[in-house]
Design a binder for these strands. Structure first.
Lengths: 300, 300
DNA sequence: CTCGTGTTTCTTATGTACAAAAAACTTCTA
DNA sequence: TAGAAGTTTTTTGTACATAAGAAACACGAG
C-alpha cells in the first residue's frame, strides 16, 4: 500500500495554518489550500475531512470556518511525514558511512529491506536511482556491489568538481553586468559576512549557504550534466556535514573566508583571480572531505 | 515470472559448442561449461537436460557425450534471447527518436508498458535507471517528463565531452613510455588504417572502433564519473549510428582521418598538438550529432 | 460565465507471490 | 582427496493487486 506521508505532512502544515485563524474565520477554498500546501485537491479534501472530525474546522461545502475552541489537536509525528525514499536514503547512507559494510561487499536487497523495514521493491528502486551517485555499482550478473565512500571516490569526485566549477566560474565572470545574477551574488556575499560575524553560534548554517553559493555559480550557463553532478556533491556534503563534526566551526570559518575571496574575485571579473580563488577553496574542501574517507568505507 | 532469456541465449551458445563435437565426444564438465557460457551451473544443468531430451547429448552424470546423429535441433529464436532490459531500452529509444513523443511530454508508465508489452514494473525500473542519461526527468510529484534528444541536449553533452576528453588526452600523452597503453594505441592506429583502406565496404565497423578508441583514451587515468558519462556518449552514438544513415560512409571516413591525426598527436606527446587534434575531431562529431537533433525531439 | 465543491477516472507507489538463476552445501567417484 | 555431479538455499526479476494521490469531469451558486 502506498504510504500517506504526503497527507500527514500536509495535514501538519494545515494545522499550522488554521492555528493562525481566529474562531469563526472562513477557511480558504480547496483550490487555494491545495496551492498553499503544495498538494492536490484530493489530499486537501482528506485533510479538511479529518480537521472537521477533530473539530478544528466546522461547516461543510462552501461554508467552512475555523473552530478555535477545539482542544489541542495532535499533529502526526515528524517521522511519519518523511517520504519513504528520503528515509531509505538516510538509512542507507548511515549504514554505509557507519562502516557496517566494507567497500566491495555485495548488497543484499532482502537484507536491507528487512533492516530498513520496507518492501524489497522500495530497496530495489532506491538502489537503481542511487546508482548515479557512484557509491554502488550493478554487477553484470545482477545484484549490487558497494563501492563505498573511499579515498579514491573523493579524489575522483573532486577532479570533476574542479573541472566543472572552474568552467562555471569562468562563465560567471563573463556574464554581462546587467545579469541579475550579480545582484544575487552580492546578496550571498552579504549573507556570508553576516554568518561570519555570528560564526560562534550559527556555524551550522554554513552547509546550506555553501550549497546555495556553488549552485548559483553553476547557474551562469546551465548544463544538465553539471547540474546532475551537483546533486552528487550535495548528497555527499549533506551527509558529511552531519557526520563529521570534528573542528566543524573552524572548518566552516575557513570556508566562509575562502568563499568571500572567491566572490570578490568573481566581482572583480579577473579571470586569473577567479581561477586562483576557486582552486584554493576547492583544494581545502577536498582536504576536509578526504580526511573523513577511508578505504574500508567507514568514517574515520 | 522472471524471463528465461538467459537460458535461451546460453542454450543457443551451447548448441554451437556441441555442433563442433563429433559423435561420441565427451561433454566438458558442468563447471567448465558454466565458465565458457558465462552462466551459473544451475543454468548449465538445465541446458544439459534440454539437450539430452533433444537427443544432442546422451548419457548422464559424469558420462555424457555428443550425439551427432541427432537431427537438426532448432535454436531459440534470436528475439527470445535478448534480455528484457535491452529490449525495453531499444523500444524506448525508438519511441523517443522516432518522434512519437515531444520534448516536455509526460511519460505514462502504463501506456508504455502496454505498448512495449511488458509489466509496469519493468518500465518503472527502466525509467529509473535511464534517468542518468538526461533524456528524461522525474517530476517532484511523481511521474516522468520527457526531455528528449534536443539541440540543447547535444550541446550540453558535447560541452562536457570536450572537457573530459581534453583532460584524458592530456593525461594520456603524459603517460610514461613504458605504459602498455601506448602499444594498445598503436594497435588501434593500425586498425584505423586498415578500416580506411576498406572503407567502401566496411564503413559500418567504425562505430565500434570509435567507441574503443575514446574508451582507451579515457583509460589513462580512470575516473568513475567520466566512465559513467562515457556510457551516455556510447548510448547516444549507438542509436545515432543506427538511425542516421545519411552520408554515413563519408562521415565515417572523415572521422577516421581525424582519429588518425589525433592518435599521431598523442604519439608525438605534444600537448598543443593533442589539444588541437582532439578539439577538431570533437567539433566535427558535434556537428554531425547536432544536425540530427531537433527541438521537437524527433530525428530530422 | 466563473469559481467552488462534488464525483469519477487515471496514474503511481508499495506490498506480496513466484519462477529463474546464482550460490552454497553435500555426496560421490576416480 | 580433488574435482565432479547432485541437492538445497538464497537472491533476484517479473507479474499482479491495491491504496494514495493527481487530474479530469460535472454540476451548482452567485
Amino acid at each position: 500500500m502506498k504510504t500517506d506521508t504526503l497527507f500527514k505532512r500536509a495535514f501538519n502544515d494545515a494545522l499550522l495554518l488554521t492555528s493562525r485563524l481566529r474562531d469563526g474565520d472562513p477557511i480558504p477554498s480547496e483550490t487555494t489550500l491545495a496551492a498553499e500546501l503544495g498538494v492536490s485537491r484530493t489530499t486537501v479534501r482528506k485533510i479538511l475531512q479529518t480537521l472537521t472530525e477533530q473539530g478544528v474546522v466546522a461547516g461543510a461545502g462552501r461554508s467552512r470556518f475555523a473552530r478555535a475552541s477545539a482542544g489541542e489537536v495532535q499533529p502526526f509525528p515528524e517521522a511519519e511525514t518523511v517520504p519513504t525514499s528520503v528515509q531509505v536514503e538516510k538509512q542507507f547512507m548511515e549504514w554505509m558511512l557507519r562502516g557496517d559494510a566494507k567497500a566491495g561487499a555485495l548488497i543484499n536487497e532482502l537484507d536491507l529491506a528487512r533492516q530498513f523495514k520496507v518492501a524489497t521493491t522500495v530497496i530495489r528502486e532506491f538502489l537503481n536511482s542511487f546508482q548515479r551517485f557512484g557509491l554502488i555499482e550493478r554487477r553484470p550478473s545482477g545484484g549490487w556491489v558497494l563501492q563505498g565512500f573511499t579515498h579514491s571516490f573523493a579524489l575522483e569526485l573532486f577532479e570533476i568538481r574542479e573541472m566543472f566549477e572552474l568552467r562555471s566560474a569562468r562563465e560567471f565572470s563573463s556574464l554581462p553586468g546587467t545579469s541579475p545574477l550579480w545582484h544575487e551574488l552580492r546578496r550571498l556575499r552579504q549573507e556570508h559576512i553576516e554568518l561570519l560575524s555570528e560564526i560562534e553560534t550559527r556555524f551550522q548554517d554554513f552547509s546550506d549557504l555553501d550549497s546555495r553559493f556553488h549552485r548559483l555559480v553553476n547557474t551562469a550557463v546551465p548544463n544538465r550534466f553539471i547540474d546532475g553532478f551537483f546533486d552528487i556533491i550535495t548528497l555527499i556534503f549533506h551527509y558529511h556535514y552531519q557526520w563529521n563534526k570534528k573542528d566543524e566551526r573552524e572548518r566552516n570559518e575557513v570556508a566562509i573566508r575562502e568563499h568571500l575571496a572567491y566572490i570578490d574575485a568573481l566581482l572583480s571579473r579577473s579571470r586569473s583571480a577567479v581561477a586562483t580563488a576557486c582552486r584554493r577553496h576547492l583544494a581545502s574542501a577536498r582536504q576536509t572531505l578526504i580526511r573523513s574517507t577511508s578505504d574500508t568505507g567507514s568514517v574515520a
